[in-house]
């Protein structure tokens, strides 16, 4: 599904190397987790994959089902099935959440050669998905993420994911700022989308999210590289001993 090979990335504005050769392969239907200390490059990886400006790929490749991601505009990446749940969802005053979602859903359908979803169909679908995530009608009407609490923002990300039904989902610290109940809701939302050949890359700083979303593979990222990969037990190891032991072991 997602193939990343020898990815080297530096900042556009300054000569600073952030990713220093990332190799990663997420097979269809699997959940991979990336853990790592702050500043190790996890968000950078998610941004580079989704096409944010400000980064330069100096070496390596990234493909989604064989499509060269790095050659595509952000909206084209979304249309072929890539989704990033942002660590910091952006507030957009003046754009209604519902308008935004409908525009996004229909833009993607159009890009895939499908007919636009009509207003009634769309409403029915969004109401159902919103209910599952305990997102009330008011949140749908408000401008995108404006005045949302941290937890509401994260649930709104998952709602978008549920509506867009991407093939490859990257979740960047979706657990940060969530209380236990909200985390459970988010995890249920993610788990509902598991299977069906979908790939997940769950970026998290802590192990606790992985209690709810069981990963198939866990990677440890440090200083722009994946330094260790293993099964779910690797996450427990981090939880117990912190990153120190693992990092000194691979150093």
């Amino acid at each position: 599904m997602l193939e990343i090979k020898g990815l080297n990335v530096k900042l556009e504005e300054e000569d600073k190397q952030i990713l220093k050769g990332v190799d990663l392969s997420v097979e269809a239907g699997t959940v991979h987790a990336i853990m790592g200390p702050n500043g190790s490059g996890k968000s950078t990886l998610s941004y580079v994959l989704s096409g944010r400006d400000g980064y330069v790929v100096t070496e390596g490749s990234a493909t989604l089902e064989g499509h060269d991601l790095l050659d595509l505009e952000p909206e084209e990446r979304a249309a072929i099935g890539l989704f990033l749940a942002f660590q910091y969802p952006v507030e957009i005053p003046g754009v209604g959440n519902m308008t935004f979602l409908r525009t996004a859903v229909n833009a993607q359908r159009k890009a895939r050669g499908l007919e636009e979803m009509n207003a009634t169909e769309f409403l029915k679908l969004i109401r159902q998905k919103a209910k599952e995530l305990q997102i009330d009608a008011d949140m749908l009407k408000r401008p995108v993420n404006v005045g949302f609490s941290g937890g509401e923002k994260k649930r709104n990300e998952i709602l978008q994911m549920a509506m867009l039904e991407p093939k490859m989902c990257i979740l960047d610290e979706t657990d940060s700022g969530l209380d236990v109940d909200a985390m459970k809701l988010v995890a249920d939302g993610v788990n509902a989308l598991r299977g069906a050949g979908r790939g997940f890359l769950v970026i998290t700083h802590y192990q606790r999210l992985l209690n709810h979303i069981q990963p198939d593979v866990v990677h440890i990222m440090s200083d722009g590289r994946i330094v260790k990969s293993g099964g779910p037990e690797l996450a427990l190891e981090v939880e117990e001993n912190g990153y120190g032991d693992i990092l000194s072991e691979v150093a």
């Binding site: 249309a79 952006v90 754009v95 525009t103 996004a104 993607q108 978008q160 867009l164």
Partner: peptide, 14 residues
């Protein structure tokens, strides 16, 4: 706002 623009594009909006 470049952040807002990227957010919308990342959801597939041209």
């Amino acid at each position: 706002d470049e952040d807002a623009l990227f957010y919308l594009r990342a959801r597939g909006i041209p």
